[in-house]
C-alpha cells in the first residue's frame, strides 16, 4: 500500500509492502506499538524509539503530538489522493468548475441537483469504482449549474459529471 503523507507542506511517500516500509524509496525498519489505555504510541525507526501521541483524526487528517509539538498530518492512499487531485482539478468554484470522474466506474447516486448551493466538503455524487463506493466532494462553495450524468450510468475516467458555478450575488431584500 502506498501512502502520501503531507506535513507542513512537505509530502513524503511511504510504501508498505507486506513487511517492508519504504520512505521515498528508501527501506527502513519501523515498529509501531500502542500503549493500551492511552493515546501514546511507541515508534521505533531503525532502532531509535520515541513516543508520539495521537490527538484527533478524521478520514485523512491526523493530529500527532510529537515531543510537545502538535503536528497536523494528512494521510492519503493513492486512490484518495487521485480523487482529490482530479476533483480539485477544476478548482475555481469562485469561477467555474467541472467535476470529472477520477476513475472508471458507476454513478450510484446523485446527491445534488441543478441550482443547489454547495459548500466545501459537501458530497456531490456517489461513484462506485474498483468495487468501492466513493463520494466526490465539493472543494469550495458554489452553485450546481449542470448535472451531466444520471444514477446507474457507467462513466469513463475523466468524464465530466457535474458543473459548478459561483454563487450569484445575494438577492436584495428590498
Amino acid at each position: 500500500m502506498k501512502y502520501f503523507v503531507t506535513i507542513g507542506g512537505r509530502t513524503v511517500i511511504v510504501e508498505l509492502d507486506g513487511e517492508i516500509v519504504r520512505v521515498d524509496g528508501c527501506q527502513v525498519a519501523a515498529q509501531l506499538e500502542h500503549t493500551p489505555g492511552t493515546p501514546e504510541i511507541r515508534i521505533a525507526i531503525d532502532g531509535v524509539a520515541t513516543t508520539v501521541a495521537v490527538d484527533a483524526r478524521d478520514r485523512t487528517l491526523w493530529r500527532l503530538v510529537d515531543r510537545g509539538s502538535v503536528r497536523e498530518v494528512v494521510v492519503e492512499d493513492e486512490r484518495t489522493r487521485q480523487i482529490r487531485l482530479l476533483a480539485g482539478a477544476g478548482k475555481a468554484v469562485d469561477g467555474h468548475a467541472v467535476v470529472k470522474a477520477p476513475m472508471p466506474g458507476l454513478v450510484l447516486r446523485l446527491l445534488v441537483a441543478v441550482g443547489d448551493e454547495v459548500t466545501a466538503g459537501m458530497p456531490l455524487l456517489a461513484l462506485e469504482a474498483m468495487k468501492m463506493e466513493n463520494e466526490l466532494k465539493a472543494i469550495g462553495s458554489g452553485r450546481v449549474t449542470g448535472v451531466l450524468v444520471r444514477a446507474g450510468q457507467a462513466v469513463e475516467k475523466g468524464q465530466k459529471l457535474l458543473e459548478l458555478g459561483p454563487l450569484g450575488p445575494a438577492i436584495p431584500l428590498a
Binding site: V5, I7, V23, D24, R57, W62, D66, V75
Partner: peptide, 15 residues
Amino acid sequence: TTTRLAIVAALLAEE
C-alpha cells in the same frame, strides 16, 4: 521529524 511522523501516520492509516 517529518519522515518519522510520516511513517507513524502511514502505519496508523494502514492499521
